[in-house]
Design a protein around this nucleic acid. Sequence first.
DNA 1: TTATTAATTAAACGTTTGATTAAAATTCGG
DNA 2: CCGAATTTTAATCAAACGTTTAATTAATAA
Lengths: 225, 225
Amino acid sequence: MPQAQAVQQGRARDSRKAILDAAERAFADFGFGGASIRAIARDADVNQAMVHYYYQNKDQLFSAVVERRAGDINERRDLALDALFDNAVPALEDLVEALLRPTIELGHDVERGGDAYARLIVYFNNSADERSQRVAEENYDPIARRSIDALMRVLPGLGRAEAVRGYLFAISVALSVMAKTGRAARLSDGLCDDSNTEETVATVVAFACAGIRALADGRFENRQD
Amino acid sequence: MPQAQAVQQGRARDSRKAILDAAERAFADFGFGGASIRAIARDADVNQAMVHYYYQNKDQLFSAVVERRAGDINERRDLALDALFDNAVPALEDLVEALLRPTIELGHDVERGGDAYARLIVYFNNSADERSQRVAEENYDPIARRSIDALMRVLPGLGRAEAVRGYLFAISVALSVMAKTGRAARLSDGLCDDSNTEETVATVVAFACAGIRALADGRFENRQD
DNA sequence: TTATTAATTAAACGTTTGATTAAAATTCGG
DNA sequence: CCGAATTTTAATCAAACGTTTAATTAATAA
C-alpha cells in the first residue's frame, strides 16, 4: 500500500509526481479514452504497475490530476474575492479579472506544466460524460457559485439566470484562449499571440465584462412576451 | 469496394447512414480515443466489418462524420452572409446572429441528432491534437475567414487581430451552450434552460456583440505602452 | 542485526482494440 | 434467369489495453 503523501520518503515522491505530470499531459493531449497508462508510465520513466500502486485505477488517476491543480486555483480565487469585497463592492472589471487571472496565469506557466492542465480544463469543462461532470462539480462548482453570487452583488440588475450565463460565458472565453489549438494564429496569420499574459487577461476581461453588462441590460431569460 | 454514394442502392444507404449516426454519438460522448468501432457497429445494428467497408478506418470515419454536417452549416452561413451584404453593410447584431444561428439551431435539432454533433464540434474545436485541428481547418477555416472579414467591414474600428479574437470568442460562447454538460442547470438550480432556441440565440448574440464592440473600442493587441 | 514496511520490478492475466480475410448472401442490369 | 457487382457475414489477426500478481530491492525502526 502506498503511504500517505506526508509520510512518504526517498524515491517515492519523485515517482508519484512524475506519474501525475505525465498523466496530465496525456489526458490533455488525447482525452481520457485516448490516454494509455502504459504510455503515461513510459513518459514518467516509471514501471507501469507503479501507476496502479499509487492511484489504483485510471479513473482515480484522472481525479488526482485535476485535484492537484484545482486546489491552487481555488485558493487564489478565494483570496482574491475576500480582498475585493473587504471594504466595498468592487468594479465589475476587477471582479472578472480576479476570477479569470489565476486560470490564465496557470495556463501560461509552461515550466510548471500549466499549459497541459489548461487544455485539460477545457477538455472536461466541455465534456458531458459522467466522469468529466463529476470532477467539474467536485472541484469547481463551489467557487463557481461564490463567483456567481459576487457577480450579482456587483451588478444588481443581473438576475440569477443571467449571472450563471455570464459566468459560464466568461469562463468559456477564457478557456478558449488556453486550449492552445493554434487556430487563432492560423486565422490571423500570426497576428494573434496568446503568449503575453497581461494582454490576454486584458482582452478577455474586456470582452467578458461588456458581455455580462449586456446580459444585465436586456433581460433574456423568463421573458413573458 | 463500396459504391459511390450517388449510385448506392437498397440497404446500403441505410447501413452507411446508420454507421455515421452511431459514430457521431460515440465520438461526441467518448472522444476519438474513447469511442470503439465495435460499439459503433453494435449501436448502428451493423456488422463490425461494414464500418471498414464503407469508411476504411477510424480516422476517415471521424472525418466523414464532421464533413456531413459541416456542409450544411457552411452552406447556410454562406447564404446568410450573401443576403446580409447584398444591399448595404448590416448591423453587427444581424451579422453575429447570422454566424451563430445555424450552429445553435442544429444543436437544438435533437430529432436529426444535431445535439450529438454539437457536442462533437465542441470536442474538436477545443482539442489541440493533429486530427482535430485538421478537421477544423478543412471544414471551418474558410467560413471563419469570411466571417472575420465581414466583422471588419461592419466594425471599421476593428483590427484584424481583434476581429479574429472576437470571432473565436463568439464561437466559443455559442458552443458553450451547446455542450449540454448540464452545468448551467446545476449552477442555476434549473433556472437556466438551453432548450429554447430563440432565447439562446438572443442571449448569446447580445453577449458576443457587446464583447466584440469592447474589443473595437479599446485596442488590446500590439499596444506600445 | 533483524523484523517490518515501503517502493519497485518483470511477467502475466483476460479483454478489447482496429483491422483483414474469404466466403456467403443479396441486388440488379441484361 | 443468369452472371456480375455489391453488400453482409463470421472468423480471425496481432497489438494494445487496464489490471493483478508474486517476487525483489531499498529504506526504516527496534
